[in-house]
Structures are given as structure tokens and as C-alpha cells.
Design a binder for these strands. Structure first.
Lengths: 234, 234
DNA sequence: TAGATTGTTAATCGATTAACAATC
DNA sequence: TAGATTGTTAATCGATTAACAATC
């Protein structure tokens, strides 16, 4: 019924895939988790893994993992499982990690500085090439191999230096305005740490990390948990 | 059919709620967003808001917001909407923000330091009362009003000082072991920044922030977006 | 009252899971 | 071959949405 065939690019074999009509958010969220887990297996020199092994390590069902992967192709072998290195390479490709991304950081506060110094990105093709902050005391300082520049230089810089991603660690009150400026400079991806739901056009993607939201979720769950405990002790 | 009645505590009126048998994850994720949005309306002195106004500000449907809230009670007024201050107070209560939480931070690297210095928590009842790191050069240093202590003192400290939440910003290789130690000291909530799926017993809640995962999602979406663009230009 | 918006139900949509033929 | 595990379908489960009676 189905044809077997080689797909182009680096000799990866891909047989079939679900009709690519938008990958569900849940699947997208799990891809980096698979990537991380497989990287760890590589480090530990594990050559082979099954969907059920992966599942029990990640508290997911084996069926879900297989179903997720099937959106992109079939990467395993019947009766055997997955070769770790091969699957990792596929997922790496799916995530777009063979591309290189240039990034700018806006907001060199505590969080901005931590992110700029966080090394884990550079090795994976994300390179920070400019930092902006409107605090004149920071201007001219070096941080993560970049000179901190005033935000007024933003447009000038982006015009000359093609940039894929802007990291936004500005105070809430400034974020939407800066976001608008970034968008009109043609930025296509925003990594938003500012506690604000940004308004952007359809063709710009935003991925956010809202620290406080996460802590509030923890608070909710703690309360829920202690409620359950109290209920069961009745 | 339904009874109207007063609920205890601070004179909040709550009429009915969906059978509380586990709140869906999606609802839990949106509660902090509502909280944030309502706080902003408070700051702007907006007294009243409808589900459709809230929805359009947050890119959610009005029905979803009403449905989410109905898990906890009915806080609005027919034909009028919601009083901002009242709804904020309800959500604040739902999230467990009238409690006070004590926290310890483990790992005083870039990220740990940024989080320790991030002020937004303290005002909401989350207070950091100890910081641990196994780097002897950091030992004794002050950070966010805490002395950095060696990790070997962890158990000793937790025994004497009841602690609700541990913030984990340790390197991947150390995290699971430290997590186990925290759990055996009775910690019930872990805010995990370490790029690792932690194994914990059922009665411990983990809320994670995986920076790299988030950036990889952004990478995926950027690629998906440019794919779509390419396809539509054919 | 007329107008507006809630809270809730039923309908729809989508995601997860169980099951199994295919097959290495 | 016998055993194992995939990829995929159908069944199930759960979440979102549309619609509307209730009602301020």
C-alpha cells in the first residue's frame, strides 16, 4: 500500500508521514524533551531505545511517543526499537537545529545577564550578537562577548545585521513597544521573558517564559495536593 | 434548581462549581495568565471587564474563560461582566496566594543568582530563606539577603527550617541526587530549572522551566513558519 | 423594560490510548 | 522461526466552542 523511498538530505530514510497540516502544540512541546532524553542516552553510550523505555523515563505512554514521531516519518525498526543516534539526528533536523540563528538580547537586567551567559545555546547554533539596554550605566560594558548598546541603536543595528531571534527581558511596561519596533525591523521570532502577552502579527512567532506564572502554577498545585491529602485523611 | 448561598471566608460569594475532581492542566496554566491580566487592569484602574474583553486581550475565547472560571465558582454578574478587583481576589485565593511560602535555592550559578535577585516573588508571599552551592569560592557570599552555604548543610538546614519549595538550578548531572535529598527532607514542591525530567513520588509537585526546550520550540516554529511561507509562494 | 453578559449544556473538535497487523 | 516492537487505525477520552436560557 505504501511506498518505501529515500528522502533527500543527508541520507536519512523517511518512509511516510501523517499529512503535514500543522503539528499539534503538544507534539511540539514534547520534541525538545525527546531531544534532551536522546542526547543523554548518547552521552551514556546507549545505542538503542524502545518507545516504552523512553516513555517510562519521561512519564509518557509508548503509544504517544510513537504517535508523535509518526507526524514526521518512521524512524524505528520493527521488533528492535530506535537507534539512538539516528533518532536524535532526525529530531535535531525536525527542530531546525541544522540552521544557525542569530539573536539579540534586549534588557540586560538580572535575567538578561543570566541568559546571555547561559552557554547551552551557542553550541546548538544560537549565537547572540548584540545586547541592548537603556540604562546608561551599562552602556559600553561587555557581556557574553557583546558590548551593551543603548536601545536607541536597535533599528540601526538590525538593519545592518540580519537577526532571527530577539530575546526580550525588558520590564513589562516597555515590552510591547520594543516588540513592535522589533517586528517592524523584520524580526521573526521572539523569546519573551517579560510578563506580558505580546501582540504580534501572524507571521511572527513568540515563545514565552513567564517565571511568575510558573511559580503561581506551583503554588496552585501545592495547595491542590495538600487539599487532597486533607480530604483523604477525613 | 441551584441554591444561592454565601461561602465562608472574607465574604466572597460563590454559588456553584463544577465537581472538583482534578482541574485540567490547561485551566491551571491559564489561571496565572488571568491573574496577570487582571493585575494589569487594576493598575490601570479599570473596574470592570467582560469575558470577551479579557479574551481578546489574551487571544482566548470568551467561552473558554467563563468555562475555566466555572471550575471554581461563579464570580461574574449577568449582563455586566466581572468586577476586576473581586475576580482578582478570587483568582489570587484559588492560586493559593494568601499562603506564605518559604523557599530555598540550590545552585548559585548565573541562573540561580538571577532568580534569587528577581524581586517579583517576595511581594506575593514567596520568601527565599537560604541558598546552597557546592562551589567553595561562593561559600559565605551574600546573595539576596542570604549567605551561600555548602550543599552538605542542606539536610541540617531543612530540619530546623520548615521549607515549602526548593528552586533547583543545579547542573544536570547533580539534579536528581539533590532532588532525592530534598524529597527525603520533606520538600513538597520543586521549581526545576535543570534540564532533566525529575523522578519524584506522587505527593511531590514539580513545576519546571527548561530554557533550552523553550528555545528549541521557537526554532521549530520559526522553521514551520518559513516552510509555510515558502509553500504559499509556490 | 431592553440590552448585555453570564454560567452551563450539548455539540464539536482534537488528542491520547489501546490494540494489532506488519515486519525486522 | 519465535519474539519483540514498530507504525497506524479505531476507540476513547477530554477539552474547547457554540449556543442559549437565566438574569442582572
Amino acid at each position: 500500500m505504501r511506498k518505501l523511498g529515500k528522502e533527500g538530505g543527508r541520507g536519512m530514510t523517511t518512509r511516510n508521514k501523517k499529512i503535514r497540516a500543522g503539528i499539534p502544540q503538544g507534539v511540539i512541546s514534547r520534541l525538545p524533551i525527546y531531544y534532551r532524553s536522546l542526547s543523554e542516552l548518547m552521552r551514556r553510550d546507549v545505542g538503542r531505545v524502545s518507545s516504552s523505555q523512553l516513555g517510562s523515563a519521561l512519564d509518557l505512554t509508548a503509544a504517544q511517543i510513537r504517535s508523535d514521531l509518526s507526524y514526521f516519518g518512521s524512524f524505528g525498526q520493527h521488533g528492535y526499537g530506535y537507534r539512538v543516534e539516528e533518532l536524535l539526528q532526525h529530531i535535531s533536523h525536525i527542530l531546525g537545529l541544522d540552521a544557525n540563528y542569530t539573536m539579540v538580547l534586549i534588557g540586560a537586567g538580572n535575567l538578561g545577564r543570566a541568559i546571555a551567559s547561559y552557554g547551552n545555546f551557542r553550541n546548538r547554533g544560537f549565537s547572540l550578537h548584540a545586547i541592548f539596554d537603556n540604562n546608561p550605566h551599562l552602556e559600553g560594558n561587555f557581556l557574553a562577548d557583546c558590548i551593551i548598546q543603548p536601545i536607541s541603536k536597535l533599528e540601526e543595528f538590525l538593519e545592518v545585521n540580519p537577526t532571527d531571534i530577539a530575546i526580550l527581558t525588558t520590564p513589562r511596561a516597555a515590552s510591547q513597544e520594543i516588540c513592535d519596533r522589533l517586528v517592524s525591523c523584520g524580526i521573526k521570532g521572539i523569546w519573551n521573558f517579560s510578563p506580558l502577552h505580546l501582540q504580534v502579527p501572524d507571521n511572527v512567532v513568540v515563545e514565552h517564559i513567564h517565571l511568575t506564572d510558573s511559580l503561581l502554577k506551583l503554588s496552585f498545585k501545592l495547595q491542590e495536593q495538600s487539599q487532597q491529602k486533607a480530604d483523604s485523611e477525613k
